[in-house]
Simulated assay, not measured.
Amino acid sequence: MEFTIGSYFTREHYPKFFKAWKVMNGKMRKNPFAGMGFMFKYLLETWTFVIICWMGMILIMLLTFGQSKAFKTAKDYCKNDSKIIEKTGKIRYYGLLVGGSISTKGESGESELTFTIVGEKGNFNANAELTKYNDTWEVTDLQVK
């Protein structure tokens, strides 16, 4: 008996994920485009899944980089640097999306961060390079574009 994506897999509204995944995975190994029919049949569920995945990635980025000591040091540097204030105007806030890399080993480390500064004169992208000595982060380079 061959199972298809239909009433057997649905809960009246959406398919049972793992059973549908197993069937579709087998079909897509033979024909990579077989998943397109499933995606269009369950278009709303597909986009809901994609949106939830993006929200999860943004939450991870926010919690990983946005709450780090390196980013707090970069924000303090921006608030106190006269050249940055002259370019951006008074800084209102910083964007939620903070990306980059942070690597530490004991009391030393390096970090490269990319974030958005929202100031009186508009939105600006900032790239910060930081180093960590004796458990203290210091900005080595910060460019605002």
Rank of each mutant, 00 (worst) to 15 (best):
L63D: 07
K69C: 01
C53I: 09
R29Y: 07
F71C: 05
W54I: 03
M55T: 09
M61R: 06
K30C: 08
G56K: 04
P32A: 01
C78F: 03
F40S: 12
I52F: 10
K75M: 08
T73D: 06
C78R: 02
I85V: 08
M28V: 04
T73V: 05
Y42W: 08
K41L: 08
N80C: 08
M28C: 11
G66K: 06
G56M: 05
K79G: 10
Y77T: 01
L62I: 00
I85N: 04
E86T: 09
F40C: 08
K27I: 05
G35T: 05
I51D: 10
F40Y: 11
M36E: 08
L62D: 13
L62Q: 15
K83C: 05
L44R: 15
D81R: 13
Y77K: 05
G26D: 10
M55V: 07
T64N: 12
K83P: 07
K27W: 08
K75H: 06
K79D: 12
T88L: 04
G56F: 05
Y77P: 03
F38S: 02
G37I: 00
G37R: 09
A74W: 01
G26F: 00
F65L: 01
A74M: 02
Q67F: 00
M57E: 14
A74Q: 01
N31C: 08
G66P: 03
D76N: 15
T48D: 11
G37Q: 05
Y77R: 06
S82R: 14
I84L: 06
A34R: 03
M28T: 10
I84S: 03
W54V: 05
G26S: 12
F49Y: 11
L59M: 14
K72M: 11
S82T: 07
P32K: 01
S68Y: 00
E45W: 08
L44Y: 14
M55Q: 13
L43G: 10
K41Q: 12
Y42E: 02
A34V: 00
E45V: 00
I85Q: 09
L43D: 07
I84P: 04
K30L: 11
N80E: 11
K69V: 00
I84T: 01
D76P: 07
I84A: 00
K87L: 05
M28A: 11
L43W: 11
N31R: 05
K75F: 04
W54P: 06
D76M: 10
A70W: 01
I85K: 07
L62M: 11
K83F: 00
